[in-house]
Design a protein around this nucleic acid. Sequence first.
DNA 1: TAGATTGTTAATCGATTAACAATC
DNA 2: TAGATTGTTAATCGATTAACAATC
Lengths: 223, 223
Amino acid sequence: MPNRAIPDATVARLPVYLRALLELAEGGEMTVSSEDLANLAGVNAAKVRKDLSYLGSYGTRGVGYDVEYLLYQITRELGLTQDWHTAIVGIGNLGRALASYKGFSERGFRIAALFDVDEKVIGEEVGGLIVRHLDELKDIVTDDRIAIGIVATPPQNAQEVAERLVDAGVKSILNFAPAVVNVAPDVNVRKVDLSIELQILSFHLQRTQAIASAREANRQLGG
Amino acid sequence: MPNRAIPDATVARLPVYLRALLELAEGGEMTVSSEDLANLAGVNAAKVRKDLSYLGSYGTRGVGYDVEYLLYQITRELGLTQDWHTAIVGIGNLGRALASYKGFSERGFRIAALFDVDEKVIGEEVGGLIVRHLDELKDIVTDDRIAIGIVATPPQNAQEVAERLVDAGVKSILNFAPAVVNVAPDVNVRKVDLSIELQILSFHLQRTQAIASAREANRQLGG
DNA sequence: TAGATTGTTAATCGATTAACAATC
DNA sequence: TAGATTGTTAATCGATTAACAATC
């Protein structure tokens, strides 16, 4: 096992390479160069080679990387050779979208349970699953060996839900609620915030606009 | 204007501080220390002070930061003092969730138009807006001064949709499709990939599991 | 052998953090 | 003045990148 630690930045790019390799495999490509893979992934070739070198020496000089072999190595490195069971808490608009999101099942993530506390939602069928009351969380997490909890509640409830997930034995949380949750340090929490990305876009837009106005003002002054 | 360049890593945290400050303001807090703000944002105090120092010297030694004043400065820095018009392309599950996502309007993002190419979806009302055909994109972008395009299509269509958005004059794209899009370098593209985050969680879970098994094996060998 | 491409080195760049002087 | 807390420095750490020897 090639087991030096893999940098976080590299781990974050492995899923991107994985997707590109799946496309290449579908297209019947047998090998790929770091140059071509870089173009597909939207990064540069040096980064691809450096990243892949952390997994081991899986390329062939003068030839490139074997698509299927690299695909397998990345899949294995990311832990995607096994199926992970997940539960979604909070079955609003976002929870529903996530429950039927194909990208999850395609990658071996199985949504095994849905939870809410709203009586109007409990019992409803969403994406082939019946929505359960949050009070059933602990039992179902144990019975269904749920490893990952997905928080899709309003921000006010995110902290409590995260705590209940941890209490139920979940060791990984994906947090879609626009709120920071604090749990024990051995629990892995990752956050996806839809509006943060928009705010970063706004920052850059405003910059561009400010530069454009300055240029315009300058032009009018005959600068 | 305090206009040294602000590091990307800092810009990415400003929305997190913003949310924490909004909470503090609601709770009636007048000032906040870097220590307390750090706890709310899930980072450390030195980082908060460093980040805020890029905006200017808005704190008071011995006292902390004025909540309302800092709120305003961050809002301004992020370009959130103006409303940005956005359009969502691809009105499937995710597009619908985004169309009714409150976090956008709360931050001054106005969803001004929805687009799809599926005749079954066009004409439908979603979140108070009628879904238009993608062919109307250019006219509507111009008329409604749409600055940000949100791509929520299947991956195969993401590149074409991105190109059409750029062609229509959009300078910022938020890409939710699980695909890399390549456009002109002056267009700002940000990517949110729901399944990438899950894959990173999987990586860490598998690591934890591997360590646990190794320890167990070691124990059984009487190590 | 000649051409292509990897894997690795080393330089560079950017981000994080602790520490503390400045100052309210 | 004494206590609290900022703003900034400087050390450290991690990520990126170009360059090229190794090697298919």
